[in-house]
């Protein structure tokens, strides 16, 4: 209960800070749009079925954009030197960790809200079962946020963190990416498949495992 309250306080603070540096949100959204554009140039040829590329473009854009915002996730703490201070007043690192996960989740939800309609529009695609895709996006973004926050937090103290973050993050998130692309592909092409629930449960298991493992590892690895 107390952790929940502290998490909320920190999240509210982060939202305030983010709202004041509007540039960051704008730049990240801009990056996402450009990603979609670049992929379109890369994949689209006249006459080819554009619809095949929708899932890939969507999920890879989300992955790339999340790694951009992850690199800035702990910037307010690093600039002001409040990292140790916060974890020493909130009886551990859990509230800080979860507030950052929520912030990252809000961020990627925002990106998602912009990118999904854009991709569907650009590629003239239609989703057959919206609910499943939303569920897949939700599960995928939660997993990305949890694992990404842990990696961003831990790599903050390592040299070359800008390079190391994708290096570690992308292979680790491969199951989410594969599952997300599959679910979206099935939905875009309108094929009803029993595999759908398999993929969703894989994503769910991924999220559950890392929601338990990540905060524990974060606490362990950042102890004095």
């Amino acid at each position: 209960m107390n952790t929940l309250r502290l998490t909320w306080l920190l999240l509210r603070k982060d939202m305030q800070v983010t709202a004041r540096s509007k540039e960051l949100v704008g730049v990240t959204l801009m990056f996402a749009v450009l990603c979609v554009l670049v992929f379109s140039f890369g994949f689209l040829q006249s006459g080819a079925a554009a619809i095949r590329y929708v899932p890939g473009v969507l999920w890879v854009t989300l992955l790339f954009t999340s790694s951009v915002s992850l690199l800035r996730l702990f910037a307010p703490e690093e600039e002001g030197g409040t990292l140790a201070l916060v974890s020493m007043t909130t009886s551990g690192s859990a509230p800080l960790f979860w507030s950052k996960v929520c912030l990252q989740l809000l961020f990627s939800a925002l990106v998602c809200a912009l990118i999904v309609p854009l991709v569907l529009l650009f590629f003239d695609a239609r989703l057959s079962n919206v609910g499943t895709v939303v569920a897949a996006l939700g599960l995928g973004l939660i997993g990305q946020a949890v694992v990404g926050t842990l990696c961003a937090a831990l790599l903050a103290q390592v040299r070359l963190k800008e390079v190391m973050l994708p290096l570690i993050l992308y292979p680790m998130l491969a199951p989410l990416l594969i599952a997300g692309v599959k679910v979206t592909a099935l939905s875009v092409t309108g094929v009803e498949s029993p595999a759908l629930s398999n993929w969703l449960s894989l994503m769910m298991v991924f999220d559950l495992i890392f929601m338990v493992v990540s905060p524990w590892l974060y606490g362990r690895a950042t102890q004095p």
Binding site: L154, P171, M172, P175, V213
Partner: peptide
């Protein structure tokens, strides 16, 4: 940090196994 990432690798690999199989 290295140790933590190595620990993360184990469940990740396990899930990658299922993902690529399907």
């Amino acid at each position: 940090v290295g140790a933590a990432m190595a620990v993360m690798g184990a469940p990740a690999s396990y899930l990658i196994h299922f993902a690529v199989k399907w």
